[in-house]
């Protein structure tokens, strides 16, 4: 375990709360911990359940931007870190699928996919973008869908993108659950049913 915070490089014990300190598995410092505000609520969208992990905020946005746009790939496994064991348990038997990006060529990596590298769940590359507009996506030819249960992961709650992915996947799978890293609470509460 590193002794410094991978976000701000201060000592990992900096402003650390007692609970995390006692658990001895703190992986970011107490200040950076505040960037991740748990929401952990489930919403309904077009007959699917969407789980939102964190509240969208300026700080989290800029961290995501630092990873996706600036290319600070050292941050990749940090975003879902706290939820790895929870998701693996809760979504046992699901196939992990990520929302494709239209910028793979430019960035040199599929950013959402790489965020999930700590997960040992079964992963499958089902969707791909066919232009730099992320809404132009399609099923991959070689995807080999077998009516399985799919856990679709994205960074933001993006209605049009989810809708598109649902339309493509639904005829071929048993069910779809969605996990998004963060969402704007104002938008989400207008559609909250759970």
């Amino acid at each position: 375990m590193k002794s410094y915070c991978p976000i701000c490089f201060r000592d990992i014990t900096h402003h650390q709360n007692l609970f995390d300190w006692l658990k001895k598995d703190a992986w970011i410092c107490g200040d950076c911990r505040l960037i991740f505000k748990d929401v952990n609520q489930v919403f309904h969208f077009h007959g699917c359940l969407i789980e939102v992990l964190y509240e969208q905020s300026e700080e989290l946005d800029s961290l995501i931007m630092q990873y996706q746009e600036v290319g600070d790939i050292a941050l990749r496994s940090l975003f879902f870190h706290d939820y790895v064991s929870y998701m693996q348990k809760h979504y046992k038997g699901y196939t992990l699928v990520w929302m494709p990006s239209g910028k793979v060529k430019e960035r040199g990596l599929e950013t959402v996919k790489e965020m999930l590298d700590e997960f040992s769940m079964k992963k499958q590359e089902l969707l791909e973008c066919i232009s730099d507009d992320p809404l132009y996506m399609r099923l991959r030819n070689d995807c080999g869908l077998k009516k399985q249960k799919v856990l679709l992961v994205d960074v933001y709650f993006h209605k049009a993108k989810l809708q598109m992915a649902f339309d493509l996947l639904k005829p071929h799978v048993q069910c779809i659950h969605v996990v998004v890293l963060c969402g704007d609470m104002k938008v989400l509460h207008t559609m909250r049913l759970d």
Binding site: Y4, F9, D72, I73, E114
Partner: peptide, 21 residues
């Protein structure tokens, strides 16, 4: 501690001044 390896581009980069790109 400020350098990170990027396996996708096979190079190292500096994280200390990443705020400047």
């Amino acid at each position: 501690k400020y350098f990170a390896y990027d396996p996708f581009h096979e190079n190292w980069y500096c994280r200390k001044c990443i705020a400047f790109g």
